[in-house]
Amino acid sequence: MSQRRDPGRGPRRTPDPFPEPGLAALGLRPGDHVRFRRRADERWKEAVVVRRERDGSVGLRDAKGAARAITIEHLQVRTTGPRGGTVWESLAERAARTEQLELL
C-alpha cells in the first residue's frame, strides 16, 4: 500500500513580519482584500493583494484565480468602520495619508 500525501496539507506559513517595501508604502500587505473596476460603469470585482508590480500597479489574484495588475486609482481596500462594519476605502487616499507605523 502506498501512502498518499494530501495536497492541502503541509507546513503552514506564518505571515511575513516585514512586508515588501512597495506594498508597505501604500499601506497594504499580501493577502489584503481589495476590489477593483476598470471603468465607472463596471461592477466591482473582489481580489486579494499579491505583490507590487514594476510599473507601480498592484498585483492581484481574483476570485477565479486569474492574476491582475491594477493601477492604484482603480482600487479600494476593505477596512473596518467605526462601528465594526465593512467599509471600502480608496487606495489612492490611503496611500496619500501618513500613518504611524505599527510597533512590535
Rank of each mutant, 00 (worst) to 15 (best):
M1L: 15
D41L: 07
E93W: 14
L26C: 12
L23A: 07
D55P: 02
R37L: 01
V49I: 13
T98Q: 15
A40R: 01
E99W: 15
L101V: 12
I70M: 06
D16P: 06
F36Y: 12
R61Y: 02
P21H: 03
P11L: 12
G59I: 00
D62N: 11
H74D: 05
R13S: 13
R37K: 11
R97S: 07
R9M: 14
D16M: 00
T98F: 14
W88L: 11
G81W: 11
R39W: 00
E53K: 08
H74Q: 10
A69C: 12
G84E: 12
S57P: 00
L91N: 06
V58M: 04
V58D: 03
R97I: 05
A69M: 10
G84W: 10
D62P: 04
G22Q: 06
R51H: 14
P17Q: 01
E42R: 05
D41F: 04
L103T: 12
T98H: 15
D55I: 03
Q76R: 09
V48Y: 04
R35E: 06
P21M: 08
D16T: 00
R12Y: 07
S57L: 04
R29A: 15
A95I: 09
R29P: 03
S57T: 06
E46W: 03
A40Q: 02
R12N: 02
P21S: 05
A25G: 13
T71I: 09
L101H: 14
I70H: 00
A95G: 05
W88E: 07
R78N: 04
W88D: 04
G10Q: 07
R39H: 00
R12G: 11
S90V: 12
R52C: 05
G65H: 10
R61M: 09
I72P: 01
V58W: 00
H74M: 08
V58I: 10
T79N: 09
A69E: 08
Q100A: 14
L28W: 00
P11N: 08
R54K: 11
R38C: 03
G85D: 15
P19V: 00
V48E: 13
L26Y: 02
R97W: 11
R51I: 02
E93L: 15
A66N: 11
V87C: 10
R12Q: 07
G56S: 06
G31L: 07
R9F: 13
T71R: 08
G85A: 15
K64D: 08
A95D: 07
R52Q: 07
R35Q: 07
E102Y: 02
E42H: 10
E99G: 14
I72K: 05
E89T: 15
L101Q: 13
R39E: 00
